[in-house]
Design a protein around this nucleic acid. Structure first.
Lengths: 159, 159
DNA sequence: AAAGTTAAGGTCAATATTCGTCAATAATGC
DNA sequence: GCATTATTGACGAATATTGACCTTAACTTT
């Protein structure tokens, strides 16, 4: 359970929590040195963990006095949240995408565990019906999934 | 009688009971090794036993330091409560029935307003698909409604 | 001011480590 | 016997780690 990536991720999260600013400035080289890894490992952590999907924006600059800046987005307004959901879901999602999106939303405190469970059950039921009873194509099923997911999440975001 | 699947199921349940956390992290490879089976057997146990319908959520990650995380949302539902759901919902329900049932559950504090909203939205979406896209008979639609509602409520383990 | 030097960060591909899926078969329960 | 459930294994997909090589910006020297 001791994954370097997760350790570094945690570290950056703590830096963000420990500041009143909306962002932190990191030094790739120093971080890598501190955790005893190659610098590109930091890029990997950033790319895989601090994504817009998870509510972060990242800026950086090369050269002397270079830095990596991680900015925490806050989506307070319902309108923003709704738009974010549209992007997150897109036009088609498979069951794996759904699980990933829901885990992320719960992690960010946007939905509760029970709400997540309800959404999963609804999606599974729809998948089952679409596959076994109606013999829909996988593509059709995925686009129905996307539509269902967007409606469910929108109803929460706006409410 | 002591099928491998049941033994592994039991093992995971015991892990869940033996922790104060709401979830356990499993290693598919180690588990398989421990029980002397192929790794995909673990997937079978998870898929057939630890479903959202039974109140579990499962997350997993591949690759280095990968894991399977089983989250338990609720305690086992007593038999009588399950029966109560069956009675409450029956074999067919129309949208009006659904609204009535949900209003009642919310009034009794068994579900939140947001959960109610999710269930209603899911039911409406299903109705819409069944009617407009698939041209199902009203009876068929109502029995699908009943099935969906029962699954959703059962997953929340309410009575 | 231009050119060179130094000090950042970025990209990409190779490799290793897990887990997931699917379909064939076997076993079990009715 | 037939239908459902369980077991297995081959193959595929995702994630993590590392290192070689590239790009950019500031500083230094001429």
């Amino acid at each position: 359970m001791a994954s370097l990536t997760r350790i570094i991720e945690k570290h950056i999260e703590e830096l963000l929590e420990g500041t009143s600013e909306e962002s932190v400035f990191l030094s790739r080289k120093d971080l890598a040195q501190h955790f005893g890894c190659v610098p590109s490992q930091i890029n990997y952590v950033i790319r895989s963990r601090f994504t817009p999907e998870r509510g972060y924006i990242v800026e950086s600059q090369r050269g002397g006095h270079g830095y990596i800046r991680v900015i925490r987005l806050c989506l307070d307004m319902p309108e923003e949240r709704a738009n974010h959901i549209e992007e997150l879901v897109g036009d088609t999602v498979n069951e794996q995408d759904i699980r990933r999106i829901l885990a992320n939303l719960q992690y960010r405190g946007i939905i509760t565990a029970r709400e997540r469970l309800l959404i999963e059950v609804a999606a599974r039921f729809q998948e089952e019906i679409g596959r076994d009873l109606l013999d829909l194509s996988p593509y059709k099923r995925d686009s129905l999934h996307a539509e269902l997911l967007k409606r469910l999440l929108r109803s929460l975001a706006l409410g």
